[in-house]
Nucleic acid binder design. Structure first.
Lengths: 184, 184
DNA sequence: GTCTATAAGATGATAGAC
DNA sequence: GTCTATCATCTTATAGAC
């Protein structure tokens, strides 16, 4: 395997294990075993397990928003885009077996690492800004102000993801989508 | 210390450490040290660390709803009770340093224990039922149906708690409360 | 740059004295 | 029922050979 392949392979395995088992319950030994590389190779690419976590979160953040853009690109109506945002999250939760939001999960596991804290905040701020941009164009009913509607959609979505992780289904994400439809 | 005192002391320390540091990052050694008891005493009262976790969650669930009842008892209007529910969660988050919901935290840390899963679900189902009961009496605006309004309040509250854990403030819980006020 | 071997410490849990 | 001492295992991380 080339240098880049090894790094990608490690990130790939770590991303899967951190999400499925949790960061603290995933040992370095399991990562190297499933990636089929030597321990020294991992520490050649990443200075520590924490650094591997940071790299995973940075990578994931980029891929997640790229995936969202791609998912929404077939819609032109901002209202439809907002509703499809829920579909994106529903589809991913089904695929990923209802583990909930990867950033929320890590946030619950890690208490003391400021770099992790910053990356989680950044992800959520970006998501809310993404919603806000669409709300400005989509808010016609005017039941709520643009800012209030942005918060409402953001919080309903976060709440729905929270429920997905707890109840292992997408019922609340579907409900949230329907509620947003009524408020637009 | 009497037998009951020891058990209570262990639960007390475990509750604090599991919430502040996380379950997986809290070792049995730290629990016995801070509780000032011997390791064998802990294992006399609890068969395993998992059993201690279960006892903590059961205990916490009861105390949490008792605290809620107590907090809301001075209000008679169901609409005021619903809004005060948000105040309860805001007050607790300030007190507990924005760690988010204890059940959500545990749910994110533990993947494979069905007893934990059941207790988390039970807590959330009870919270939603609590809201539903108040919504039936409070929903006058009829912007949303009773069921839709119940889900909306529940999800806004969960989303707000999620934000508290991430942003380390109660801004979104306050926003959620204001939104609910408009929808009632 | 990747390998094996190992360090140094923490983990959950138990045995046996008193 | 509480104590001390210890077990076996797992943890992250490093050293040194090739």
């Amino acid at each position: 395997m080339s240098k880049i392949d090894v790094r990608e392979k490690i990130l790939d395995v770590a991303a899967r294990l951190f999400y499925e088992q949790g960061y603290n319950l995933t040992g370095i030994n399991q990562v190297i075993e499933e990636a089929a590389i030597a321990k020294a190779s991992l520490y050649h690419h990443f200075a520590s397990k924490t650094d591997l976590l940071i790299a995973y979160l940075e990578d994931f953040n980029i891929k997640w928003f790229a995936g969202l853009d791609n998912f929404l690109k077939s819609y032109t109506d901002p209202k439809q885009k907002l509703l499809a945002f829920f579909d994106y999250r529903i589809a991913r939760q089904v695929e990923r077996n209802y583990g909930g939001c990867a950033f929320v999960k890590i946030n619950a596991e890690i208490e003391t690492e400021p770099r992790v804290q910053a990356l989680v905040e950044e992800n959520k701020n970006k998501a809310r800004a993404y919603i806000h941009k669409l709300v400005i164009q989509a808010n016609q009913a005017k039941i709520l102000s643009n800012d209030a509607l942005t918060d409402t959609i953001f919080l309903l979505m976060e709440g729905g993801m929270n429920s997905a992780a707890i109840f292992k289904n997408t019922a609340d994400l579907e409900s949230a989508k329907k509620i947003v439809k009524k408020l637009l």
